[in-house]
Amino acid sequence: MTQGRIAIKATDPTQLQQLLAECALGNQRSFETLYRSVSGQLYAVALKSLRREDWAEEVLQESFIRIWHNAGRYDVNLSAPMTWMINITRNLAIDQLRRHHEQPLPDEDSPYALEPQDERPGPLDQSVTAQENAALNRCLDTLEGKQRQSIIIAYFQGISYSDLAQQMQAPLGSVKSWIRRGMERLRTCLEG
């Protein structure tokens, strides 16, 4: 380490975990190092999704704001640090696309200015959601019983690990292990 800076490869999970932990404590130098290390990759993720540089830059900025504010919530047992940051960026890119697929407001002088806008998801939103749900269900079906059950209860029903361990009558360490391994298999399946 030189002058408070860490030289890391952008894909070194151990160093990224350390930087996130330091960001959670409010260390601005670690945040700068994290930004320099992964901003190129996160920008590429945003640009691939959005295909517009101005939107990708906006999403990148918002991603790092979220990373800074949520670094303390990062859980090494659930995903690799780069996966966690990519998911934040992807989700913000999806939000950006949804915002820009909304119909623009008509001019005040337009005869349609007072017509109510349909707030329901459009066909594109429904198609994307259906595809994402189908992929997730397909990947969930590949998990072993305890892994699948643990993930579904913990994430879709919002139950804490300790409550889940009591509900499943299993040691907390086993439940955490099932979830960690299941999440790794899900990530591999969804990325493949």
Rank of each mutant, 00 (worst) to 15 (best):
T2F: 11
Q3P: 00
I6A: 12
I8T: 15
A10K: 09
Q15D: 12
L19R: 06
C23I: 10
G26S: 11
R29P: 03
E32S: 11
V38M: 04
S39R: 09
L42T: 01
A46W: 01
A46E: 05
L47R: 12
S49G: 09
L50Y: 02
E53V: 04
Q61N: 13
Q61S: 14
F64E: 02
I65P: 00
R66D: 05
I67K: 03
I67S: 06
H69W: 02
Y74D: 10
S79G: 10
I88T: 13
T89V: 05
R90G: 08
I94N: 06
Q96C: 15
R98G: 00
H101V: 00
P104D: 10
D107P: 00
P111H: 03
L114C: 03
Q117W: 03
D125S: 08
A130P: 04
A135H: 08
C139K: 04
L140D: 06
D141E: 15
E144L: 14
G145Y: 07
G145T: 08
K146M: 11
R148P: 04
Q149W: 01
S150L: 02
Y155H: 14
I159M: 14
I159H: 07
S162R: 13
L164C: 08
Q166F: 02
A170M: 15
A170I: 02
L172M: 06
L172R: 14
L172V: 10
V175L: 07
K176A: 09
S177C: 07
R181K: 13
M183W: 01
E184G: 07
E184A: 15
